[in-house]
Design a protein around this nucleic acid. Structure first.
Length: 430
RNA sequence: CGGGACGUAGCGCAGUUGGUAGCGCGCUUGGUUUGGGACCAAGAGGUCUAGGGUUCGAAUCCCUACGUCCCGACCA
């Protein structure tokens, strides 16, 4: 993409009332725009990052049998009455129509998936037992969608919004064993997902809150902007929320010697919902003996926009963002320096080389993946070179390609790693 | 929802004891620049969040509402 065609602009200054690092950087670099407290619009660069994150989630869930659907933001009140949550979920946005019919703006989708799935599971044959060895996956349906929660206090940029993006998956099983085994299987998939987006997660068991009286498991990333406090160990897989640490100690469980404490952000969680929701909606099936049975249900969330915030918090420095390649809006940001004082021949050469790199015609191995889809070319002519370098650091694509008189004198184009700061000259064969 | 701070040009800010608003960035035009957010010149841009009140006179003082952020509480 040509930078000159990008409608967003970076700014030198950012509002002092956005104090969170993720919001400041993402707004300053033009990734997001604040509409109101806790509600942000995703601009071209921001949407590319969000899409990259969500595609990582998508690909991994498809591999474990997930079938993607898209449910709705607006839901009937009746469903929420049925589970009693119309009055108990205080973050529920409620709205009414011209005819005073009431609706919920969905904060989550158990109230929709349960009656939906009821239509399609009539027989035990519709609910295969999870069998990892033979590659048999259970019925698992997911969506990646915009969610709404009436938070009393939205804060920390994309970390806690009133409108945010979330993946939620729901799985249904004949047996509790299948559900529990899949719960563990998903845990492994989640670790892979977070690793692919550059996040190291700590797994913390917690109670399910008012969501479920069963087990839930949180995925925490060490991050100063986070709202949670965890105890964890680098050498073992021990991790727990600070709130339950004393209880764990009292229970006699062994505490690792390298125990540490840190602030963390919850980037996902998985729940064992038991039969609470299927009971409420009578989501039953007929078993082998022609008997009516209720399935076992699990639900699993990943806050994709929150992941974006956490990545921005962690992968950034005083100059700006430095995205992991897997989620970066572009792999390369190319800067060309055309100086009118210079020999026109050199300027022509700079543009010609940049053009061929941008079009994917470069022979150089390190630039093999360059093309208009992977390169953000800062082709602006009236902008100083220093400003382009600043912008490249702020926007934070992993690799910067610099084509200038100086780089040509050094034998080619400069390839600079945003993360390590290393740079080297790539030979260009013309 | 309790406590605190704030709301002035597109953005970031200043505005003294009350006298109808200014700076930087950005933008427009022209020119010079171009390896770390350049420079000169000339411009455009405002219902000082809104509504009341005090006053001869309010961005400034008082009240109310709305908005934004921070601390806390809450947190599928």
């Amino acid at each position: 993409m040509l930078y000159s065609k990008l409608f967003t602009k970076t700014t030198k200054e950012v509002s002092s009332d956005e104090t969170s690092k993720n919001a400041q950087l993402l707004i300053q670099a033009g990734y997001i725009h604040k509409t109101m407290a806790g509600v942000y619009a995703f601009l071209p660069l921001g949407l590319r990052v969000l899409n990259n994150i969500e595609n990582i989630v998508r690909e991994n869930l498809n591999q474990i049998g997930g079938q993607e659907i898209l449910m709705n933001g607006i839901q009937p009140k009746a469903n929420w009455d049925k589970t009693g949550r119309w009055n108990t979920v205080d973050v529920l946005f409620k709205l009414s129509s011209q005819t005073n019919t009431e609706y919920a703006l969905a904060p989550t989708h158990e109230e929709q998936i349960s009656p939906l799935i009821k239509q399609y599971i009539s027989s035990y044959k519709d609910l295969p037992d999870f069998d990892e060895e033979n590659g048999v996956m259970p019925l698992a349906v997911y969506q990646i969608q915009t969610k709404y929660r009436d938070e009393l206090r939205a804060k920390s940029g994309l970390l806690r919004g009133r409108e945010f993006r979330m993946k939620d998956m729901y799985d249904f099983h004949k047996t509790k064993e299948s559900q529990e085994a899949y719960f563990e299987y998903i845990t492994q998939t989640y670790i892979t997902i977070y690793n692919q987006m550059g996040l190291k997660v700590y797994i913390v068991d917690a109670s399910g809150g008012n969501f479920s009286d069963k087990l839930s498991r949180e995925f925490q990333v060490i991050c100063d902007a986070g709202e949670d406090l965890i105890k964890y160990s680098e050498t073992t897989n021990f991790a727990c929320n600070i709130e339950v640490f004393e209880d764990i100690k009292a229970s006699g469980k062994e505490i690792p010697v390298d125990i540490q404490e840190a602030k963390s952000a919850e980037v996902g969680n998985i729940f064992d919902l038991g039969q609470k929701w299927v009971k409420a909606f009578d989501t039953s099936y007929t078993d082998k003996n022609n008997k009516k049975e209720l399935p076992w249900m699990g639900c699993h969330g990943i806050g994709t926009s929150r992941c974006m915030a956490v990545i921005a918090e962690i992968y950034s420095d005083e100059n700006g963002l430095k995205w992991p390649e897997s989620v970066a809006p572009f792999k390369y940001q190319m800067i060309t320096n055309v100086n009118h004082k210079d020999d026109q021949k050199i300027n022509n050469q700079i543009v010609k080389i940049a053009q061929s790199i941008y079009q994917g015609e470069s022979e150089a191995e390190d630039l093999f993946e360059a093309n208009p889809e992977t390169v953000l070319w800062d082709d602006r002519e009236s902008v100083g070179f220093g400003e382009k370098l600043k912008d490249a650091d702020l926007i934070g694509c992993p690799l910067q390609i610099i084509v200038s008189k100086r780089s040509l004198e050094q034998g080619g184009v400069e390839l600079k790693n945003r993360y390590t700061g290393d740079s080297n000259i790539i030979q260009i064969i013309e």
